[in-house]
């Protein structure tokens, strides 16, 4: 599997990850190497196998639809890099 530079840039964009042009070149080689190694899975016949969805048989637990928590605005905002009027502040999104 040859990962080209455009693919690296496209994936980085999807992952919201800034990469420099130097990194793009290095990542091409590294990602190709990893994907080549992963390709050995093609040897395994999985035509009649279900994908695994849980390792331990269990049904998803349910709880009553009741509020058990809240009124912790200060705690939620405690680690915010920027806040304003009890809200997370971000760069302007809408002009």
């Amino acid at each position: 599997m040859d990962v080209d530079a455009d693919t690296v840039r496209r994936i980085a964009r999807l992952a919201r990850l800034r990469v420099t042009e130097e990194e793009v070149a290095a990542l091409q080689g590294e990602l190709s190497g990893i994907l080549d190694w992963i390709e050995q899975l093609d040897e395994v016949d999985t035509s009649v196998v279900e994908p695994l969805t849980r390792v331990i048989p269990m049904t998803l637990k349910k709880r009553a639809d009741k509020v058990t928590d809240g009124e912790i605005e200060e705690q939620i905002l405690a680690n915010a890099p920027a806040q304003e009027d009890a809200m997370f502040a971000v760069p302007k999104v809408v002009e």
């Binding site: 990962v3 994936i11 964009r13 992952a15 919201r16 990850l17 990469v19 590294e30 990602l31």
Partner: peptide, 28 residues
């Protein structure tokens, strides 16, 4: 700059090489 640029800059600067590699493989 804008919000997406902030995401990309934050994650580009904050994650180390191995984490970046795995995030990219995972996204791919």
């Amino acid at each position: 700059g804008d919000l997406i640029g902030t995401y990309e800059a934050t994650r580009g600067a904050g994650f180390g090489a191995e984490v970046r590699r795995r995030v990219l493989i995972g996204t791919y």
